[in-house]
């Protein structure tokens, strides 16, 4: 429990500006690399890549530094109850903004399946679109469009790896909650085991997804460039996979802190934030499973 009754206001923050600089350098480098890529300059010979790497290292340094500082402050009892509430507000609305970000891509999928593809196939008021521009096109899903962009491909089925991954993520949600119960019950063993299981399941998920992608690219002809099906498929699952990675890393940090004896039933914001994040990633996956794989 915090030893403070007063709201803690830090002074002289150095990490924010360092992190910002890192991010900016990384993105400027990435942008440079992308322009080089259009001119067929390889990743290794683009100057942009070097900046990307440097920026990324600075950014990671910031993350490590900043979170270490927060952990130290938290463990020395500098945060009172209200500080915890502010952090919770922060995390909650951050996750909300992430939900919106995913909603954009779900919305895109909806628009493409229910509007643009049917229109290209001549539906509604757009009969002339098919008649004049794409007479040979039939609106079916999945599709890579009237131009057959990206060539022939095979759509991703739901019941193989994706279904397995659904089970994995759902289980990880349970283990995460189990760990939380352990924390509340001062059962450190259960907490650590639960967290370890969650992290492991998370990485397992990512591994399976990597295998799935590999198959898509090498055996099914399904790539990011396979028309709108490929675009929406990889964009949605890709961003999700990225979030799983981030979530798993956050949970690993929490696990590490647990082994250092951090967190009490009263004071464990970091754990809670990580768990929220994990559940958010979980729920997004359910949406993906239904709308991307099943329907």
């Amino acid at each position: 429990m915090s030893t403070n009754t007063a709201y803690y206001i830090p002074h002289k923050a150095t990490w924010p500006v360092i992190g910002t600089a890192g991010l900016m350098i990384m993105l400027a480098g990435f942008a440079n690399y992308l322009n080089d890529k259009l001119n067929n300059i390889a990743f290794m010979s683009s100057t942009g890549s070097a900046f990307m790497l440097v920026g990324f290292l600075i950014f990671v340094t910031m993350l490590v530094g900043w979170f270490t500082l927060q952990a130290k402050e938290s463990e020395t009892g500098m945060y009172n109850h209200e500080v915890g509430i502010s952090y919770r507000h922060g995390m909650m609305w951050f996750i909300f903004s992430e939900i919106i970000f995913f909603a954009v891509f779900f919305g895109t999928l909806w628009y493409i399946r229910n509007l643009s593809v049917p229109w290209l196939g001549g539906e509604g008021a757009k009969a002339a679109t098919k008649e004049i521009l794409w007479p040979a096109f039939e609106a079916v899903w999945p599709t890579n469009g009237p131009g057959k962009v990206g060539g022939d491909f095979e759509p991703m089925g739901a019941w193989g790896l994706p279904f397995l991954n659904t089970l994995i993520l759902l289980t990880s949600g349970v283990t995460c909650t189990w760990a939380h119960h352990g924390l509340l019950a001062k059962n450190r063993d259960q907490l650590i085991k639960g967290l370890m299981a969650t992290v492991a399941l998370g990485f397992l998920f990512v591994t399976f997804q990597a295998i799935e992608y590999h198959e898509a690219y090498t055996e099914m002809g399904l790539t990011l460039g396979s028309g709108v099906y490929g675009s929406t498929f990889f964009m949605l699952t890709g961003f999700h996979g990225f979030h799983v990675c981030v979530g798993a890393i956050i949970l690993s940090v929490v696990l590490f802190r647990t082994t250092q004896g951090h967190f009490t039933p009263e004071n464990h914001f970091a754990f809670e934030a990580a768990a929220w994040y994990w559940h958010f990633v979980d729920v997004v996956w359910l949406g993906l499973f239904v709308f991307v794989y099943l329907m």
């Binding site: 493409i112 599709t143 469009g145 009237p146 962009v149 460039g225 028309g227 709108v228």
Partner: peptide, 18 residues
């Protein structure tokens, strides 16, 4: 632009109006 997706390209099934 850089990764060959077709969100806004009719030939690939997308739509600039999206």
């Amino acid at each position: 632009k850089f990764f060959h997706t077709s969100f806004f390209n009719a030939a690939g099934g997308g739509d600039p109006v999206l």
